[in-house]
Simulated scan of single mutants.
Amino acid sequence: MSSIKEYMFDIRYEEMRQWICEELNDDEADEDNPDWAELEEEWHNMQASNEEPAEFFDWYKRHAHSDIHQTFHLQISKLKDLLHIALPDFNEETFYKMTYAYAVTLMESFLADTVRSLIITDEKYFLNAINKVDGIKACKFTISQIAKNKDGAKGFAISELSKLMYHNIEKVMAVLKAILGRDMNTDISKVCAITSLRHDIVHRDGKKTDGQLIMVDKEIAEETILHIEEFVNSIAEQIYAPKNA
């Protein structure tokens, strides 16, 4: 890495470190803090939300909510196909942990794209978001700031929602309820357990906080994918059903 790149990396890292320390209210916090990894991921999500390409809104305008659901099923089907590949015994544990984590990633992507699509393509849902979603309704922007944003107030709303940790299922469900303006009858207990385990796999290489090793085999990977599919289908059905009624 060149000296310039090293310098820029150091600056970005220091900005992230200061933000995390402020969130933790601890100036001496470091990577050993149990909440550090999740806040670091939130920081990177925030940075990504500020670097969206100009075509970002256009993509959601061209694709219906059902397209997002179909894309999820296409990708999850590919993942299920991979489970039938014959693997050397010494590769199985790593492969199934990766499969488990990626299944959660696909669910997160579906949820994030669904939230954005609802706000971008339906004025009613956009108004619900800015009036009912806690993370948005408290934001303060000047008319000048909104005018300078190519996508106006919707751009700010999407930027704020891009900071949401989409594996925090309870928060995501609260946001969807607020945007849709109605309750959602979906059991989240299984996917909450799945996302909790995914955190251990991604951030601690499959170990719990007490050091206990988590075993993920083919059966567990298949069950995980099934529960994620059931959850996503339930969300999709409740979003589309009123429009198709």
Score class of each variant (00 low, 15 high):
E108A: 03
L127H: 01
H65S: 10
Y60D: 02
L79F: 07
S117V: 03
F57I: 14
T99W: 03
E55V: 11
A101M: 04
E108R: 07
D122M: 01
N45S: 10
H84P: 01
E123R: 13
A64M: 08
Y102E: 00
R116V: 02
L106T: 09
R116F: 09
L74T: 05
W36L: 10
I68R: 11
F72P: 00
E93I: 05
Y125C: 07
M98W: 11
F110S: 02
A48Q: 06
L79W: 08
I76Q: 05
D89T: 14
F110T: 02
E123P: 01
K61A: 08
D35M: 05
F126E: 14
L79H: 01
E92M: 15
R116M: 09
E42M: 11
H69P: 00
E123K: 13
Q70M: 12
H44I: 05
N50D: 10
F110G: 06
S66I: 10
T71I: 08
A37Q: 03
Q47D: 05
L106D: 03
D122H: 11
Y102H: 12
R62V: 11
E55I: 11
M107G: 00
P53R: 13
Y100E: 05
K61M: 07
I76L: 12
H73S: 08
L79V: 10
H65K: 12
F95N: 13
H69M: 06
E108F: 01
E40D: 12
I68N: 09
W59E: 10
H44G: 00
W36Y: 14
E51L: 09
Q47F: 01
V115A: 05
T71V: 14
E52C: 03
D113P: 00
W43K: 10
W36M: 06
I119E: 03
L106W: 04
L106S: 06
L127T: 02
E123I: 06
I76F: 09
A86V: 12
E92D: 10
E108T: 05
F90A: 13
H44C: 00
Y125I: 01
H65I: 15
E51W: 03
R116A: 03
Y100G: 05
Q70G: 11
L127S: 12
T105V: 06
A86M: 08
D122C: 04
A86E: 09
H84M: 09
H73Y: 10
V104P: 00
S66H: 03
I76M: 12
K124C: 07
E42I: 14
F56M: 06
D81P: 02
M107R: 05
W43R: 02
L127G: 00
H44M: 12
W36I: 13
T105S: 07
F126T: 08
S77F: 07
S77N: 15
H73I: 03
W43I: 04
E40P: 04
A101D: 09
W59V: 10
S49T: 04
D122W: 00
F90I: 14
V104Q: 00
F57N: 13
T94M: 12
S49K: 04
E92L: 09
D35E: 14
E92V: 11
R116N: 13
H69K: 15
I68Q: 03
L74E: 02
T99R: 02
K78V: 07
A112P: 01
E123M: 07
T114H: 04
A54G: 00
E40Y: 14
L87M: 15
E55H: 10
T105Q: 10
E108G: 02
E40H: 13
A86K: 08
F95M: 11
Y60I: 02
W43F: 11
W36T: 07
